[in-house]
């Protein structure tokens, strides 16, 4: 029995060391995860900012296109002209109403 008790004691000591080792591993791994998560959050934030920037650029371009269009239409109207466009590839035909009259 003494021999078994002695063995159990030694096993217990190893178990205790193992528990401590497990704690250290988990601490280290969770720190790694935390740091990675922080990096991901930062990257995410940067991406969001970039999206906002791009969206703003697109909006500005759209506004420019719109005002160009208005100007062209005004010029065409006041000159009494019509515009047509035949896309051969897509076989679509666009024409100003005026030309159909």
């Amino acid at each position: 029995m003494d021999k078994e008790l002695e063995a159990i004691k030694k096993v217990l000591i190893r178990e205790r060391l193992a528990r401590k080792q497990a704690g250290e591993i988990i601490e280290k791994k969770s720190l790694e995860l935390y740091n990675l998560n922080q990096k991901l959050l930062a990257a995410n934030h940067q991406l969001e900012e970039k999206i906002l920037e791009r969206t703003k650029e697109l909006q500005e371009k759209n506004l420019q296109i719109k005002s160009n269009e208005e100007r062209i239409n005004l010029a065409i109207e006041s000159a009494g002209l019509g515009v047509w466009d035949w896309n051969i590839e897509k076989t679509t035909f666009f024409t100003a109403k005026k030309l159909l009259v």
């Binding site: 190893r14 060391l17 528990r19 080792q21 591993i25 988990i26």
Partner: peptide
């Protein structure tokens, strides 16, 4: 390892 093992190691 000295016979010290943990499941997460």
């Amino acid at each position: 390892s000295g016979g010290v093992y943990t499941a997460v190691g």
